[in-house]
Computed example of a mutant assay.
Amino acid sequence: MEGGGGGAGGGGGGRSTLSEIYQDAKKVVLRTRDAVERLERFEYSSAGMESPPELSSSIARDITHIQSLCVEMDRLCRSLPSKSHRDLWKRKVEQVAEEAESLKQSLDKYSLRTQRRMMEAKERAELLGRANGDSHVLKIFDEEAQAMQSARSSARMLEEASLTGEAILSAMSGSRERLKKAHRKALDVLNTVGLSNSVLRLIERRHRVDNWIKYAGMILTIITVIIIWRWKR
């Protein structure tokens, strides 16, 4: 039967016969199937590592070649004079075409698995990159922690300055009370010795000046404390 097909194909002016094309197609199918099996063995034995790209490219070229041979065989099959021969060759061509389609599906599945592994590897790399980038985030956290620590230190310094100011004001208040008592005693003494009113007014002016000096000293002390606190902050 194949010989009859060959005779029909042989009238093509030196072109390959149907039988020769069929044999070529079967050889390419066997070679491609073996390449697909090697591709899958490499995939699983290499822990999911990507196989050499030339192997998958070679398989894709062979599948395309098989499909082109099927087209040529189908064309020659239609020119056979015998219906029985046409039906026989049609089944053979369909079988080769199905094998080519099966090989193509295997290659497509392999390509999908490869793409999925590449995406997973990319995501892991991005996660690792973000994990490494977290050192920058940790640095920011450290800077914020240092700022908070500085703020707490400044708060303690302000509290200490406030306590110091209160102590100074308390001491000044005590001094003011003592000055008042001394002033009253002095007035009593002056009144006793009969000093003039002008002398008393002079003493009173001096007392007011002393009070202004005292208040100015209190304000200057508070301003100094605030400046020191802000400078250390």
Rank of each mutant, 00 (worst) to 15 (best):
R117K: 07
L88H: 02
E50R: 13
Q146M: 06
P53L: 13
V93N: 04
E43P: 00
M118Q: 12
S111Q: 11
L76N: 01
L128Y: 02
K109N: 13
K90L: 06
S84A: 10
A60L: 04
A60K: 10
A125W: 01
R113V: 09
S46R: 02
L80E: 11
C70I: 01
E123G: 02
K83C: 02
G133R: 03
L127D: 08
K122N: 11
A47V: 03
T64L: 09
K92S: 10
V137C: 06
Y110Q: 01
E98C: 04
P81V: 10
Q105A: 09
S68A: 15
L80G: 03
Y44K: 07
D62S: 15
L103F: 03
S135A: 15
K90W: 09
S45D: 11
G48L: 04
E143P: 00
A47K: 03
M73L: 09
E54P: 05
S150F: 01
R124H: 10
C70T: 08
S68C: 05
S106Y: 01
R117E: 07
I140A: 15
D62Q: 08
H65N: 11
G129Q: 04
K139W: 07
K90T: 13
S45P: 00
F141I: 07
L80C: 06
D142N: 12
H65C: 07
A131N: 04
P81D: 12
A131S: 08
E43R: 05
I63G: 01
H85C: 11
D87C: 05
M148Q: 11
A121E: 15
L112N: 10
K109A: 11
D62T: 02
R61M: 13
V137N: 11
D74N: 13
S51N: 08
S51A: 15
L80D: 04
L127N: 05
E126W: 03
P81N: 10
A100F: 05
P53A: 15
K104G: 05
E126L: 03
E72D: 14
I66G: 01
D74S: 12
R78H: 08
Q105V: 13
E99P: 00
L69D: 06
K83P: 03
C70K: 00
F141A: 04
E101P: 00
L55R: 12
C77E: 07
I66L: 05
R78L: 09
D74K: 11
Q146A: 14
S135Y: 08
M148A: 10
S150Y: 02
S58T: 11
S56A: 14
S106Q: 12
R61W: 09
R130A: 05
S84G: 04
M119K: 07
L103V: 06
S102A: 11
D87A: 12
E144H: 10
K83G: 05
L80R: 00
E144Y: 09
S106E: 13
